[in-house]
């Protein structure tokens, strides 16, 4: 069984967490195709912009580790600590015998040819941009993704926050991927009780922990033929977008008060293994 994870190289922690969750379910990952950060066209302009928008810490973070660590200021120390904390994809792949391909674009010709040579049975998305049909056509059994919201109602971004703003239940959905945004057939979903999460950060941490394990378990059942994909009705939901801090303040306040959804869906809440 060839299972390949797609993701962003600069978000290696997420890719490694997904790979680990799959391996824990007895589904070995055979390859990782990761996208490298796009190169800046105007370097000087971008340095000036970063200094303006993010301050000098943004520049320090980009320095090589020894150089950043030599800085006597606190900012330099933070920069080097951040770099050290980032898990490295290369050593992880080497340790587990996983083939690693770094590509400039996950939808590009280089990614397509690398994936074709890997002959995947299943592709797993680990935080990618929209994947185009040419890539989705490659795997034998399809591509799966986990979404931090209950489909079909909440498609897109910041959906857990949007659900709270609209007094709806928060949950996770594992689905097959089609060329639309979160419109593929649903494999499994569950609501998550977040009444013990006092902030958005705590809620996201809880959902992040659960989602990769849920995706791995769903993938296993799907490959065994125990899960029947349920097509979505696109008109049953809306696409949501990144939430602005002005609205997030409302969500934070609701969480601080102990969030309980006003409406309930048909999906019963599942026991949650970890506390916030």
């Amino acid at each position: 069984m060839n299972i390949i994870v797609l993701g962003k190289a600069w978000n290696s922690g997420k890719i490694i967490d997904i790979a680990q969750a799959f391996m824990d379910e007895g589904l070995p990952i055979t390859g990782i195709v990761a996208m490298t950060r796009p190169k800046q066209r105007h370097r000087l302009k971008s340095v000036v912009q970063q200094l303006h928008f993010e301050g000098r810490q943004a520049i320090l973070r980009k320095l090589p580790r020894p150089l950043a660590a030599r800085r006597s200021s606190g900012a330099g120390k933070i920069a080097s600590d951040t770099a050290a904390a980032k898990p490295a994809l290369g050593p992880f792949c080497k340790q587990h015998g996983i083939r690693l391909e770094l590509v400039p674009d996950l939808n590009g010709a280089q990614a397509e040819s690398a994936l074709k040579s890997m002959q995947p049975d299943l592709l797993v998305l680990g935080g990618t941009p929209i994947i185009r049909a040419n890539i989705l056509a490659i795997p034998e059994h399809g591509t799966i993704n986990v979404h931090m919201g209950l489909l079909p109602k909440y498609r897109g971004r910041s959906v857990a926050e949007w659900a709270i703003l609209e007094d709806a239940p928060v949950g996770l959905t594992v689905h097959l991927v089609d060329p639309g945004v979160d419109t593929g057939a649903i494999l499994q979903q569950q609501t998550v009780d977040i009444s013990d999460c006092a902030t958005i950060a705590e809620m996201r941490q809880k959902l992040r922990y659960l989602q990769h394990r849920m995706m791995a378990a769903s993938a296993r059942e799907f490959l065994r033929g125990h899960l029947e994909p349920q097509p979505q009705r696109k008109e049953a939901g809306k696409q949501y977008y990144e939430m602005h801090p002005a609205l997030k303040a409302v969500v934070e306040a609701k969480l601080a008060r102990g969030y309980q959804p006003a409406t309930t869906d048909a999906i019963p809440p599942q026991p949650v293994p970890t506390p916030c």
């Binding site: 949007w162 703003l165 609209e166 809306k238 949501y240 977008y241 939430m243 602005h244 002005a246 609205l247």
Partner: peptide, 8 residues
């Protein structure tokens, strides 16, 4: 609220 969000 998506419209409010976009407008802000």
């Amino acid at each position: 609220a998506r419209y409010l969000n976009g407008a802000v």
